[in-house]
Amino acid sequence: MTDLQMTLTNTAGVSSVMSLWVFIVSNFTGSKSRLKERSIKLGNWVMLIGFLCLSAAIITRGIEAERFPLSNLYESLLWFAWATMGGFIYVSRAYGIYQLGWLASLTAIIFFFYGNCLPQSQHDIMPLVPALVSYWRWIHVPPLIVSYAMFFLAGLSGLLNLYQSGRKVTLGIMILTIAMASTAIGLGTFSDKVEVYILQLMFVGSSLVGTVLGFLSLKKVDAAKSADTEAVKRAAMYDDVGYRCVAVGFPLLTFGIITGGLWANHAWGSYWSWDPKESMALVTWLSYAAYIHLRIQRELSAEKLSVVAVLGLLLTLLTYLGFNSLGFGGLHSYGKIK
């Protein structure tokens, strides 16, 4: 890794940390003050700088490696952070939202950190195995990573919708669920001590229990919040933002799955082989198809859709990182580090 690339990546990491703090500070200023407006603007700018640095870092990495820079877990995490920042910048322009800002920075930071903790072999530029030498690689993978990031943002908007609509209990349950699932992934990646079955159970079990409890607890509403018309408006907005993210993510996921099929057919002669990761992407796809139908046909309430969106986030996490780190097998093991 060259110094330039390192510097750019670090700048991006640092600016996401900075924007996180600026966004957090903005929450403690008076609700309509100029300071608030300024700090949000500043947060957005810092994020934008991080985004640009990261774009440059990815490009320099590609130039240095003389190939498309998306071939191992580390590189894909950089892409994920990039897409999360980019996705936030995209929706924030349309909606002028800031709460999502600190969640988006936080997500980017966690992914930077995760990437940084990976062993050196992941940071180094390595030659590709024959199966990955193909132009299909850069047609197939980037849309998937970007769709994952958009689904993350949709899930985060779901959390904010729950907060603004006064569903504090549900919010707590959903956050706890995400934390449990992330812990399982962290342990699975960096520790050999815990049995994979325990981790799998930890992830899948907490997701199931969390979602069911989440639905059941929706009845508990904070009266003060639901009387606050501003909050109700903001809740509706986050619902909208979540949908916009899914509306961008879903075609990308579809495109990613289909091009994956085309590539597989081209390389192995079968566009679908029920490989675990492939199957998992299909599960995610079906869950967002369900989300869309619930939204369009059933006109489900925003809070219920938010819980579905968080479930979608968990499935996305399972597809993206869980399958490799929690010891599921399969062809797509470039994400494996052990």
């Binding site: 029920w274 199957s279 599960v283 399969g330």
Partner: peptide, 12 residues
Amino acid sequence: MTLMAATILLGA
């Protein structure tokens, strides 16, 4: 879709 997703998850 939910049943299908759960089944595929099990298969994965």
